[in-house]
């Protein structure tokens, strides 16, 4: 194993990864900012009671928010999925990377969800549920037409290859 391979995320030699929409970065940023604001508000309240602690909280909050903002584009780029002949493969994560293969026949249901910011940008997320609680996967940042298309395709293929538990 070369150093180069070690640096790349897990892919099990699978090719043809589909990226999710770049607009997802905006959704991520909105999420980071919302959480950062909440942290800052807590810090501000603490400031009244204990200035030192308040500034520590605000400082930590800002540092965390900046780091998350910097890595947001990379996090989004790490998300990928492939619709193979018999299964859907999904991957995500930079530091902790995860690769999941879900056979079409094992899918119990497919959800399409849209959060408030994602809806403004015309994005949706696709959630797949199997009989195993641990395998649930969520593909965020799909443009709405793509999400609908993938959903229909998954349902068709699940119907064709349906198996028991």
């Amino acid at each position: 194993m070369t150093l180069e391979q070690r640096r790349t995320g897990l892919d099990a030699g699978i090719e043809g990864w589909q990226r999710v929409s770049g607009k997802l970065v905006a959704v991520e940023i909105a999420g980071v900012l919302a959480l950062a604001l909440l942290g800052a508000a807590i810090g501000a309240v603490l400031l009244l009671a204990n200035p030192v602690l308040g500034w520590i909280v605000i400082g930590a909050d800002v540092v965390v928010a900046v780091i998350r903002l910097v890595i947001a584009p990379r996090r989004v780029r790490s998300i990928g999925y492939v619709l193979r002949a018999d299964d859907l493969v999904f991957r995500r994560g930079i530091l902790f990377s995860r690769l999941v293969a879900v056979p079409y026949g094992r899918m119990q249901l497919v959800d399409v969800n849209r959060g408030p910011v994602a809806r403004l940008l015309g994005l949706a997320e696709l959630r797949l549920v199997t009989a195993a609680a641990t395998s649930n996967i969520t593909i965020p940042g799909l443009p709405e037409p793509v999400a609908a298309e993938v959903r229909d395709l998954l349902i068709d293929r699940a119907e064709e290859r349906r198996v028991g538990l």
Partner: peptide, 17 residues
């Protein structure tokens, strides 16, 4: 009986391949 398969790797695992 397998419903799906996952592969995970954290930072320390990445270093040790």
């Amino acid at each position: 009986r397998i419903q799906s398969v996952a592969l995970h790797q954290g930072p320390a695992e990445r270093l040790l391949a």
